[in-house]
């Protein structure tokens, strides 16, 4: 997948900014919470597509983009951004859901490790 190659999984700079600004326990709790939220976002996009509701799918992608980008999950945020703003049809979006799922898995592992290091 081209996106996977172009954008790093984790935005290390953003994570460092958060680390400097937040209580470590609080940051850890948020990093651990992101995967669950992302999985819920993916499920919401799938449900919207199944219902043929393209705008709803984009809105769900928008929410996913917001939290993942702010918590340093750069590749996840980029995939969500493409679904929200770039992909024109339901088929194109559907084609991006498997890599989105894989990225959620990889992000979960990376963030868990990051949380442990805090």
């Amino acid at each position: 997948m081209s996106v996977a190659a172009a954008v790093p999984l984790i935005d290390q700079d953003q994570l460092e900014l958060l680390q400097a600004a937040l209580d470590p326990d609080e940051l850890r709790a948020m990093l651990v919470a992101l995967p669950t939220a992302a999985a819920a976002g993916l499920a919401a996009i799938e449900a919207a597509l199944a219902a043929g509701d393209l705008p709803q799918a984009r809105k769900a992608a928008h929410v996913l983009k917001g939290s993942s980008s702010s918590l340093g999950a750069a590749r996840l945020a980029e995939l969500a951004r493409m679904i929200e703003l770039e992909l024109a049809t339901a088929d194109e979006i559907a084609a991006h859901l498997p890599p989105l799922g894989e990225t959620i898995g990889a992000t979960t592992d990376a963030l868990t490790r990051a949380a442990e290091r805090l």
């Binding site: 609080e26 992101l34 929410v63």
Partner: peptide, 13 residues
């Protein structure tokens, strides 16, 4: 913010 994680993050900062 409609995203609970974003609310939490801003509040945390």
């Amino acid at each position: 913010d409609d995203d609970p994680l974003c609310r939490r993050l801003v509040a945390g900062v």
